[in-house]
Design a binder for these strands. Structure first.
Lengths: 199, 199
DNA sequence: CTGCATCCGCTTCGATACTG
DNA sequence: CAGTATCGAAGCGGATGCAG
């Protein structure tokens, strides 16, 4: 599952996968890749640029796991509030997190809004339009709101567990944007319907 | 996940769970149950009837995993065609299998139909009605078609990988029902859209 | 540098015996 | 029925080596 999660962000090299799976033994990764290839979940693809090597990518059957992983992530997302422990957070997951929370949300009654969200290293944009929400893996210069915080605070704000004001007051987040834009953010965040985890 | 799968069919006792998880060590099961209770996935419930003991049941958060498990099962279902190896098949999973294949299928253009499906030990009924498909965990005496076969053949027939005639010819299935009913079965089975697994 | 294979210490597991 | 205790076997994380 972790390998599929990595590949769900796009084709990756052996070394990229290693980097995304801290602690995995190289023989185990190699064996799992063979096994997943045999099961028709991923394909090997030899490439010569930028460096000679092998690209691993999901097959159609592997792609079919993506919505399931997203639902599993959505189920587990409330646990992010309990802090990360020694879990790692890859900046590229910001897109995944935003899609998880907003991708099939209704925008009924909410005015368009552009949000820039950053964990310090990477920045993404959430574009709330008339009848859909789009996620972009880059910073929109026209953003109405800008939020910068650690992953678990970002999650707390985006999922409505923490208001922008509370997050700013606790000093864990820096937020820029006028009152109207913040209000629209709060309205959207309140629509994220997750079942909270205990304690 | 396997424990949640077991509990997704209803509350179970320690011994029931053991029976549904062949090979699990009792200490491991006990530890997992404590862990899952702590994580808010299941609850312990002491009962005195029919025998004094403990019932385990999913919490609301645990119930939220059921559709995810169903989607995972749907993803993995094509692998049933490759035979079971030493995998076990619990007769109670027939309901799960039928729901997985038919529960949110459109019945447009298909006349009502009652099917009785049996693996020899348990029998369930699939009731195709005007605008929905219902699964019953019992045999309907009014069934238009009766199918009896081993789990992987049942799956092959119900998912349209094998026609009723092919299955009968190979001697792995016994099917009773007139031509019209068989034809409706084939039409429904063809609507199950699973991505086939390789070889 | 990429993509592995090999080896080792440790954790975890399956199996079984036993208890309130 | 609902677990706890114990033990050998298997699998894993981590370090290291090495061919293309």
């Amino acid at each position: 599952m972790l390998i599929v999660r990595e590949l769900s962000l796009g084709p990756r090299r052996f070394t990229d996968l290693r980097g995304g799976l801290p602690g995995i033994a190289t023989n185990l990764l190699a064996e799992r890749l063979r096994s997943l290839e045999g099961a028709g979940v991923l394909e090997r693809h030899e490439v010569s640029r930028p460096l000679p090597g092998v690209l691993y990518r999901l097959t159609e059957r592997g792609e079919a796991l993506k919505p399931i992983l997203r639902d599993l992530a959505r189920w587990g997302a409330p646990l992010m509030l309990q802090g990360q422990g020694d879990d790692a957070f890859d900046g590229r997951w910001l897109v995944f997190l935003a899609e998880l929370l907003y991708s099939d949300m209704s925008t009924e009654g909410v005015a368009p809004l552009v949000m820039a969200v950053s964990n310090g290293a990477e920045t993404i944009s959430i574009l709330v339009e008339r009848d859909s929400v789009r996620i972009e893996p880059a910073e929109e210069p026209t953003a109405d709101v800008r939020i910068e915080a650690d992953p678990s605070t970002l999650f707390a704000i985006l999922s409505g567990q923490l208001t922008p004001e509370q997050a700013e007051a606790s000093g864990t987040a820096v937020i820029k944007g006028n009152t109207r834009a913040r209000k629209r953010l709060a309205t959207l965040a309140a629509r994220v319907g997750l079942i909270p985890a205990p304690s």
